[in-house]
Computed example of a mutant assay.
Amino acid sequence: MIHIVVNVGDVMIEVKDLTKEFKKPIRKEGVFGMFKTLFSRKYETKVAVNHINFTIHDGEIVGYIGSNGAGKSTSIKMMCGILTPTGGNVLIDGIEPNKKRKVVASKIGVVFGQKTQLWWDIPLIESFKVLKEVYLVPDEDYKERLEFLSDTLGLNEFMNQPVRTLSLGQRMRADLAASWLHNPKILFLDEPTIGLDVLVKEKIRKAIKTMNQKYHTTVILTTHDMQDVEDLCSRIIMIEKGNIIYDGPLKDIKYRFGDLRTLTIKTKEEYKIEELNTFDNRVSYQENEDSLVLQFNADKIDIKDVIDYCFHKLSASDLKISEISIEDVVKNLLEEAEKC
């Protein structure tokens, strides 16, 4: 596992040897098996989070990513104090969240993509007023933050509508505002842009950046949208099968696989893939509809040589070159982890 820590400010989250195990009864097949299970004391243990360690500093925006069932949500719930660790511990601004949930609740904000903390049948502004009283937000601070959130997230157009009448995009913006109304030191965002259109995603990303820059909010972002990660995160922590497989700067992760490039060309020239120049197996070819796709490591072969070959030998009429995407890197890392 690659592990790089960048000191940004005070330690906001410290995870030490954190472990979470779940026990479930061993179920037998059939109707009689179901009744036997009711009286059985045999259990199997599933390790959801396996002795993980990391530190997150004040002001960081960290992408916490992995496949479904990797342990992301379980570890986030332990950081929020919802679940108690089986082993190890987690500190939020120096406090154990499962022991002092009320204190930690005042320091964090949480957004879960498919759940809301807003009151369904009352206007959005009334939900904000309730949260103001719950978190004891002073009048002056409430007014300043609500104005900032309204401008940044465009809330004014639906501020007086009941929450149940809001679209998904409007509700996600409202939930983000609600989670930050008490100015938490740490913001946990679980799939905040799931199912949203491009314009709403852009508004939410811009708001998160602004909160981080203006108020130094530390952000932990879990998402399957790699564009969220590339736009927002300077560092990623990748978890798979309960283990951390990468922890470091986003810009460094691509170099694990070298300077991989993809060259897509269109040509009317007749060719056979097996007869194309592989440059001593440093270039691979793949046909994709009406295009020919070349992949190679620019650290091992001169890009100019590959481009010259495309134009002069394949008579390329159109050419597009791109670097490996963070999505491809994550996919490769997860595939490596599954093989272990």
Rank of each mutant, 00 (worst) to 15 (best):
P85A: 15
N297D: 08
Y255L: 03
N160Q: 12
L187D: 11
F188R: 09
E270Y: 11
R164D: 03
I204W: 04
V330E: 12
H182I: 00
I186H: 04
V200R: 08
N7I: 05
E60N: 05
Q114H: 13
L146N: 01
S315R: 10
G30D: 04
L221E: 09
T152C: 13
T267H: 00
N297P: 03
A105S: 15
V104I: 12
R173F: 01
D280A: 10
K23T: 12
P249F: 01
K272H: 12
A178D: 07
N277D: 13
V293I: 13
L196M: 03
T37Y: 10
T165P: 02
R282P: 00
I122H: 02
A298C: 04
P97T: 10
V49T: 07
C80Q: 13
Q161F: 10
I92Q: 08
K77T: 07
I125K: 10
F112S: 11
E274C: 07
I2G: 05
P123H: 04
L131P: 05
T116Q: 05
L276A: 06
M226L: 15
H224F: 12
V103P: 02
D141I: 12
V103C: 04
E202T: 14
E230T: 14
T152W: 13
K23H: 14
A70E: 00
Y285C: 09
K24N: 14
M78P: 14
G258Y: 04
I122C: 00
K251Q: 07
I4F: 08
D121P: 02
S284P: 08
P85G: 15
T262I: 06
Y215K: 12
M79T: 08
I108H: 11
K102W: 07
Q227F: 12
H51Y: 12
Q213D: 08
L196E: 02
Q117D: 11
K72I: 00
F128H: 05
K36H: 15
F158Q: 03
S75Y: 00
K313L: 10
W180R: 15
I186N: 06
S150K: 01
G81N: 08
D17A: 09
E126C: 07
V137L: 01
R145W: 07
K107N: 07
M238N: 00
Q114N: 14
D318H: 15
D121K: 06
I186A: 06
L314V: 00
L149I: 02
L199I: 15
I326W: 03
E274H: 10
I303R: 13
N50T: 00
L292P: 05
N288T: 11
Y43P: 11
I13Q: 03
I92T: 04
G195R: 02
L124P: 03
P192C: 04
V8S: 13
V198G: 03
V6Q: 10
E133K: 12
N332H: 12
F22I: 01
N281D: 09
D290H: 13
F32M: 15
R173D: 01
L196W: 01
K339A: 08
E157R: 12
A178K: 07
L263N: 06
A48V: 04
E29N: 10
E191R: 09
K209A: 06
L333D: 03
I303M: 13
R101K: 13
K115C: 06
E240Q: 04
K201R: 13
T210I: 14
